[in-house]
Amino acid sequence: MPLLILLAILAVIAIVCIFHQLSRGFAKTNLNDQYTWGLYIQGFFFLVSAGAGALMVLSMLTLAQVPMPAGFADFGNALAFTLLIGGMVILGLDLGKPMRIFYMITSKNFKSPLIWDFYTLGLTALLSLLFLFPFLSESGVGSQVWALLMLLAAGMCVTVHAMFFPAHEKGGNQANLFLVFDTFLFSLSGGCALLTLMGAYLGLSLPLLSRCLFLLAILLLLSAAGHKIAPLRSGRDGLLTVCNLLKILVVVLLAVWQWAAPTQGLAVAAAALALVLLFLEKYHTVAHAQHEPPIPGTYGSHRPAATYRPAAKEWLIFIGGFSICLLLWAGICLLKGIWPWTL
């Protein structure tokens, strides 16, 4: 109950900030010419990545017909759905002209990653919405078909996100294999982590998720090793080091959980860390990547360095938005009658 009140307060603050953002635009954010994408985009990637990852995990579990605790898929799907909606709202807020968003439909520029994102995310959210209704979630073959479609849609959505990295070494956005691989792994691990935390909150347990997270974290470490070897340039990246340390920590925690002390606390801790890791990774791809201006430094000696620290308004919208997602999730579950506690 106190948690709900806290979430409600954060949600109200967020709504106020959202209206402020819609009417005054980018006043009071710290975005600038060098850091054109900031916490909003990072938040969007985070929410969608976690949500789509959770949906991919759920669809894989459904397809493989792995036994899940009762209602787990419903809760998970609802939570993922709200996160996707939350991501879309934050993305809409990041636009200069949010009311024009449907121009994306009239244009037919299928070379643009954003169009693909628009459609795949839309499809993912639609499928997720459909699954909220009993006709789909309780039908046998129906849910299998849904799971396949969802896996494809969410998978495409996450793949498209790999194309967004500002890579100024070549003109435009050019993904490389490690980045695509990473994005997938991060999304899946975020999904596993999200579902684990949700399960812990609801008292439902699915240890398979933590094992998957363990495996995913190891794979992430392998890809990190690849990252280290691949680039031709040398240079230290402090944030990447932090991320890699977190990955190691997750692996260690889950190894302990797996073989030494299978307490739920460890699994929850690992899942929380994995979500933080996802958040940092999204920060790294968005804000950190804009650290270097597009034109090499030699052509502009002594340019004053731009910095970016998200402004209060941005944090409030992000955190409050996350709260809205959780409140919405609670609301959906109540409507479906599956909320385990009475209000």
Binding site: T36, L95, G96, Y103, L114, H168, G172, N173, P294, I295
Partner: peptide, 16 residues
């Protein structure tokens, strides 16, 4: 009149 202000063009442009 069509620009929605998503700023991906800014991240895409290598010439700033």
């Amino acid at each position: 009149n069509k620009c929605i202000g998503c700023r991906s063009c800014i991240t895409a442009c290598p010439y700033d």
